[in-house]
């Protein structure tokens, strides 16, 4: 599996981001650091990450005013920059995934979601991800959730 997340990509160029991410994460652990790996394959990234909220059938759930959006048959995904932006920046309750997924994994999972649950077969590439990620990724403050 590839190990360079977008934060690390930026750290290599910007120097600072990675240091900050590590410092902020010091408390964000059950006490220790896990070595959980995420697949590089689009469908598996979906199952290991996205499915937690968007469900196995990508239909989301919940009720009005407390909903998780469906990814299946979602016309907002026609434009690929939109879901790329969501993975890079987060939106509403959804966090950014720059500190969890590599650009390769983002491209793979977006290609899968747009192609498999929707009828947008043109692949999302790493070049697309880099093109959209113009700002340094967010660095999360520590919290106690992961821990």
């Amino acid at each position: 599996m590839s190990v360079r997340t977008v934060s690390q990509m930026f750290a290599a160029t910007a120097g600072l981001a990675l240091v900050a991410a590590v410092a902020a994460r010091a408390q964000d652990a059950p006490g220790g650091v896990t070595t959980v790996q995420v697949s590089d394959e689009g469908r598996e990234v979906y199952e290991q990450i996205c499915q937690a909220c968007h469900m196995a059938d990508a239909r989301g759930g919940g009720g009005a005013g407390a909903a998780i959006p469906a990814l299946a048959d979602n016309p907002k995904l026609a434009e690929k920059d939109y879901p790329i932006m969501l993975l890079l920046k987060g939106r509403g309750g959804m966090p950014w995934f720059t500190d969890m997924l590599t650009p390769e994994q983002m491209a793979a999972v977006l290609t899968y979601v747009r192609g498999h649950f929707n009828a947008y077969p043109d692949p999302v590439t790493v070049a697309d991800i880099t093109r959209v990620s113009t700002a340094p990724p967010p660095v999360r403050e520590c919290d106690t959730c992961g821990k």
Partner: peptide, 13 residues
């Protein structure tokens, strides 16, 4: 289990 981040998503799914 007290799973967060990637491991937390894996369990939630």
């Amino acid at each position: 289990a007290f799973a967060g981040r990637a491991g937390g998503y894996q369990f939630a799914g």
